[in-house]
Write a protein that binds this DNA or RNA. Sequence first.
RNA 1: GCCCCCAUCGUCUAGUGGCCUAGGACACCACCCUUUCAAGGUGGCGGCACGGGUUCGAAUCCCGUUGGGGGUGCCA
Length: 469
Amino acid sequence: MTAPRFRIAPSPTGFFHVGGARTALYNWALAKRLGGTFVLRIEDTDEERNRPEWNQGIIDALAWIGISADDPAFEGPYFQSHYAAEHVAAGVRLFDAGHAYYCDLTSEQVQERSKASGKPGYDGHSRDRGLEPGPGRVLRFRVPDGSTVVHDAVRGEVTFDNATIEDFVLLRGNGSPMFLLANVVDDMLMRISHVIRAEEHLPNTPKQQMLWEALGHAAPEWAHVPLLVNEQRKKISKRRDKVALEQYRDEGYLPGAMVNYLMTLGWAPKGDTEIVPWATIESEFRLEDVTHSPAFFDLKKLAAFNGEYIRAMPVEEFSAACEPWLAQWRDAHPEAVWNQEWWTTMAALVQTRVVTLAEAPAMVDFLFTPAPELDPASVAKVTSPQAESVLRASAEAFASCAWSADAIKVAFEVVAEAHGLKPGKAQAPVRVAVTGRTVGPPLLESMELLGRDRILGRIDALRERIAVT
RNA sequence: GCCCCCAUCGUCUAGUGGCCUAGGACACCACCCUUUCAAGGUGGCGGCACGGGUUCGAAUCCCGUUGGGGGUGCCA
């Protein structure tokens, strides 16, 4: 048996769809494990959506999820537009062999005839009219009688009655090839042995299989994997859903988490945990084990996976991984004074509290800005005589205590006891004064870093704010 | 309308005729831990769409119903 050849055939749209990413991953896992080839073919023949600059975006998106163009198993990219002559030639061959015929009806006329007869689709009007090629004439495939059985690796046998399939168009009136033809001819040219794609293509499959056979080849192995859907159970689309892989990347999702999560949609690794390394996925993934029903693309679960992956990182790695987002924050806050050591100290505390890397700056911003941005709701929570009293007592205690997290803790305990509060409660007003919010990373460590003077200044500032309110 | 696919906790799934009193994960709830919030630990809630068969025995096989979804272009 020759090595299998897989492929993905995205069109350049300016972003890479997460559903396409999952399909790519399925193909990639199999190509790698079976010693096969993963072919990238960019279907750039739709003139309305075709920008050369989008091509690099596809390569980059694939690289991000671990499908590297430098890997020996990777082949391409090929561009569908480069094979237009072959597509047309195949159409002509089909015509010469009697598998296709020309028709001079416009699409409007086809519609009218359909409406008049009450039957959907094209009625085969020109099947036996013996028309020669000419301007405005489309080439249609002569769908044979009988039925077409598609052998699908995930769904088993699917039978289509050919009577329900109209004589579809191969070449447009202007002579250009249609998707169905181009797609099949390309797959033949590239010797694709396995076509793994989304379920939406299943209805196309009998047509493509007939094309393969009419062109004198055995059809490839088909596999139609379930769709990714939103909470309304509709397939996720650019219009209503967040589908761009690049967007998740920019929001600080880790590629490992995204890949792992995507692979659990429609499939599951053996055992009781879904969090598994790619090596496990690569060795265990089987098309036969893919689920048949659509899967909800759940952002909550993706976030949970991402949190797991973030926490699994060595802290140095986490710290470094945050850098792009920290740099972005610095650019947006020229007034801030960055202190790399402080960040390094805080990184471990931040790591267990973020779900995406993009959330990191907001966890530590108060350390670097001259004054914390006071969150109104948080300020409201600590606007009370008791809070004011706690702030005053704290300021007094901090003015004289030793300056370390431990000493600050003791000082807090004294203040808390004097007010009949639990230490955590007593911290709240000070936390708002120091960080601007009621929640955040552990306070004592932050206070130690900021130093006595800044802390006292911030407490004063909040006291004034509360008094004015 | 026609064609096709699908149906296990709210969600993602395990399960391929007896091991199922249906397992895990996310979410949710409670408790523990605790300097807020997290993280972590423990426990809980919660499901085989429905109706017929087949079988000694069905979540697993068959048929139907219902309910979802996809496809029906001179788009890809």
